[in-house]
Design a protein around this nucleic acid. Structure first.
Lengths: 152, 152
DNA sequence: CTAATTGTCTACTAGTACTATGGGATTTAT
DNA sequence: ATAAATCCCATAGTACTAGTAGACAATTAG
């Protein structure tokens, strides 16, 4: 049940891009270097990850001087589940309960397989959280905790 | 978020051992070969897995003719979470939210890290299911589904 | 006592995935 | 033209996964 480094870094980067830079709601553009420095990630590795996210349609980019990355949609419309699946594949712990990458497992009868029933519950619980949490939800929650603790 | 083959086979074997063989509630004893055949698992591989489970205190065994494995406690007292952790390690998707194997991640402030907050929810959701589902629950549910479908 | 049966233990291997790193090509602003 | 960025491909090291192999120890039947 583990999130890979690619997944972790990708999620962190997306959250960073979702944080409102100023009062305006304008989508923020950031460069790889900038994100890498701030999140303490290898620049080259992050480059690869952001490119994957871009090719999946979650990010847009601008090349050349003054370029960078920005969210393809508003932070409200991008969920953690979307990002996770691009970088770490299906959410399901076992293929026979996967919605996006179903494959039969070895059990004689899937419908009555106890393991499958339990893992189905797990899959649903995970997907429920990941697919219903947007980047906006994450930054909002971060802000709320900060405020509560009296931190800038 | 994946269950390894070791984890899958181990869980299947434990469920098989938890299934009541006859009307009595006596703990069932089964041999490696028997389980391997029934669940279509390599005997040698399963052997290794059952041994791990035994050394973790979840199984007991009897050597020699007529020997085999049996549950160390009643099926009600063994949860999927216990088995999972022995074979696949911590349930948490990221170390900084792990209860049994905590390690700090790279974020500047853990308390306000949005990713950590979200992954903490995921960890809790998974642990909630796995730690509150016993082997008895699994076999019971299996039985209920079978009955509903009119299958033996 | 002996042989058969069953679990115990350690080591090894082939393949795959993960975590990067490096070098160049392409695009854009000045 | 030059510098600053992204784009893209290849590769290397490490660790993990899913097994396989074989010798050893304990128990029981006869």
């Amino acid at each position: 049940m583990r999130l890979s480094k690619r997944g972790e870094y990708g999620l962190r980067a997306m959250i960073a891009l979702a944080e409102p830079a100023d009062k305006s709601d304008a989508p923020q553009m950031m460069q790889i270097k900038e994100i890498a420095l701030r999140e303490q990630i290898s620049t080259k590795f992050l480059e690869q990850i952001l490119l994957t996210l871009k090719n999946a349609g979650l990010l847009h980019s601008k090349m050349g001087v003054g370029g960078g990355y920005y969210l393809a949609r508003s932070a409200k419309e991008i969920t953690l589940g979307q990002i996770f699946r691009v970088l770490d594949g299906p959410v399901a712990p076992i293929k026979c309960v996967s919605q996006m990458a179903y494959e039969p497992c070895g059990c004689p009868d899937e419908e009555t397989c106890g393991l499958r029933l339990a893992m189905g519950d797990v899959r649903n619980a995970i997907a429920d959280i990941l697919d219903n949490t947007s980047l906006a939800d994450v930054t909002k929650r971060q802000g709320a905790v900060r405020k509560k603790l009296g931190i800038k």
